[in-house]
Amino acid sequence: MTISTLKSRPTYPGLSPDHNARSNIIVCDKAGAEAVTELFSRADDTFAKRSTVIVAEGTTDQDAETLKTALAPATVGFQPSLETGIARLREFLKDAPMGLRLYAAGSEPLIGSVVQAAADYSIDHLSIRTEHRGSLKRRVQCVHCKGFTENVTTNPVTCSHCGLTLMVRDHYSRRLAAFQGVCIDAEVPGEVPETEALYQ
C-alpha cells in the first residue's frame, strides 16, 4: 500500500485521460503499462493517436510486441532502463508546446523520476497524472552521506554508500525523488530492530 498519514507522502490518484490535451506523453514500466492499457480503454479512439508511450523498464522483446499491439495506435518506444527512459522524456519535453499532458504509471521511483524531470521544464507536479502499479520498492536517500540506495524493499536497509543501517521514513522529497533514510541505531549502536520486507 502507498497510504500513509505523513503529509509529505505523495498520493497517486490514478490515470485519467485529458481529452483536451493536444498530445500526451506517458511514461511507464512493465507493471504500469497495464494501467496505460486501461487508460486507453477508458478514452476515445483519438486519445491513443495523440499519445506517445515510453516504456522505461523491465520489458522483454516479447513484452514489447504484446504492448505495441495493446497500445496501438499510440506511438510506443522501449527503453532499457529508467535512466534512459527519463533521458528520452527530456528530449520530448525540451521543445514541447503547452497543451501537452504528462502521465506516469508504475513503481514509485519511476513516478518520482518523471515528476522530478518535469520540474526542470516548469511542469507543476499536480498537473501530472499518476498511478502506482507493481512493486512497492523505494529510492532512499541517506541523510548522512547523501547517497541514494535504489530498489529498497526492506526497512531498515543498509546504505549502499556509507554502510549505516537506515530507518526508511515516510518523509518524501519530490526534488530528490526519494524517501529519507536515517541511522536507526545512532543512540545505541547495534540496537537494530528486525528487518521487515515492507516494500516488496
Binding site: K7, S8, R175
Partner: peptide
C-alpha cells in the same frame, strides 16, 4: 531534504 517542499509536506 526539505527544500522545495510545501507547508504541509515539510511539517509532515
Amino acid at each position: 531534504f526539505d527544500v522545495g517542499m510545501n507547508f504541509f509536506e515539510w511539517h509532515g
